[in-house]
Design a protein around this nucleic acid. Structure first.
Lengths: 207, 207
DNA sequence: ACTAGATAAGTAATCATTTACTTTCGTGCT
DNA sequence: AGCACGAAAGTAAATGATTACTTATCTAGT
């Protein structure tokens, strides 16, 4: 259990390659990144990439799969937030905060995600399913149960979930992809406003 | 006045190159498109690209500038929609419909837009300013005037505009970039639901 | 001494771009 | 009207640089 899976000897070079390649693929995409760039940044010989990975594609796939695996804790936190007995405002704020935080402590993620979709990589389907679809499914199931309790108005739960995801994600995506976009001064204010608009939009009015 | 601006002789090849390059850049990005691919699709000699454009970069820039110019009518329609005396519901529905329609009759646009941002092209700044920023500015000015009239609640107009843009755009972006995303069956229903949620979210409640 | 880690020095293919050349065609002169 | 001329349209073939990837060799730990 204490020995690594892939090699007996501790090399470290594999991790250096993955780290370098991840930031380069995130910055310039698959086509925009060369194996030479990866080797230079990782400070290893270019041929060493092919000792650890079958090809540039294989390295890219390993990185995306790793990112998909790393999504699990975030989605688990989002799921738990939706299961508490807290008020919808608290739940939605917590979900929005988690989304902001996850983008902030891994800015590469969204760029890798959108690059993989645009460049049409075969793993982008899994990437999409594990991120957007799972998020929407969880949120729409939360919305549906609150709707059945009469807390929310009767609206299409999937469209409603997409609306909330859109408000928060589009904001984060624009900030990640277009550095010229006006940075927000007050993160909490943005979260409060977004949750406020959405919640007032779906809350059932008392007669 | 009857003579074309760029060349006396009718060539047609320039337009064929632009058309081919536009769909290729939209499909595979700048780095993912080769001059050979462009020449093959346009059915012209590869060297002819360099008779009409200074470089691959120059061709790409010409295409983005053209797309930016073509944005004007859309933004003008959006501006006019916001100036009518119609109800906010009608105005917001019209804006959402225009956004859906513009993406539907030019699916290349959003892909070019996001690719330019991700690949960090120098013109993406202008692209972003002409599209997202202008849209948000117009919408937030509409929201501000309705807020002053007491129709909308007192919320940050720019954040509110971004929320609406996010709901509609994120939906369109996901559908454009991830073909595996579930296509919507009823466009009008989606628009109505989005506008409904947003409008109820920002409308001032009567006491 | 064996084996995995690492590398220098390649490989053929492909990249954007250029060169040197031919063809096409509008325009001004006779 | 005819014709020479120059410029633009178009092309085949080559340019050097860069691409992903390989091979042959060396090094270090057990």
């Amino acid at each position: 259990m204490s020995t690594p899976l892939h090699s007996i000897r501790a090399s470290g070079s594999r991790d250096k390659i993955i780290a370098a390649a991840t930031s380069l693929f995130a910055a310039h995409g698959f086509k925009g990144t060369t194996t030479r760039m990866i080797a230079d940044l990782a400070q290893v010989n270019e041929a060493l990439i092919y000792r650890h990975f079958p090809s540039k594609e294989g390295l890219y796939a390993a990185i995306i799969e790793k990112k998909i695996e790393k999504l699990a804790p975030l989605l688990e936190r989002l799921r738990r937030a939706a299961e508490t007995s807290e008020s919808p405002q608290t739940v939605l704020r917590e979900i929005a905060r988690e989304m902001f935080a996850s983008v902030e402590d891994d800015p590469q993620f969204l760029r890798l995600f959108y690059f993989s979709g645009l460049e049409g990589h075969s793993l982008s389907r899994m990437f999409f399913e594990a991120y957007i679809e799972t998020f929407n499914r969880n949120l729409s199931s939360y919305i549906l149960s609150r709707t059945r309790e009469g807390v929310f108005r009767a609206l299409d739960p999937m469209l409603t979930a997409r609306a909330f995801a859109g408000i928060v994600l589009h904001y984060l995506v624009v900030q990640t992809i277009f550095p010229e976009a006006e940075r927000l001064r007050d993160r909490e204010k943005a979260i409060d406003t977004f949750v406020d608009i959405f919640l007032q939009g779906i809350l059932r009015r008392l007669p």
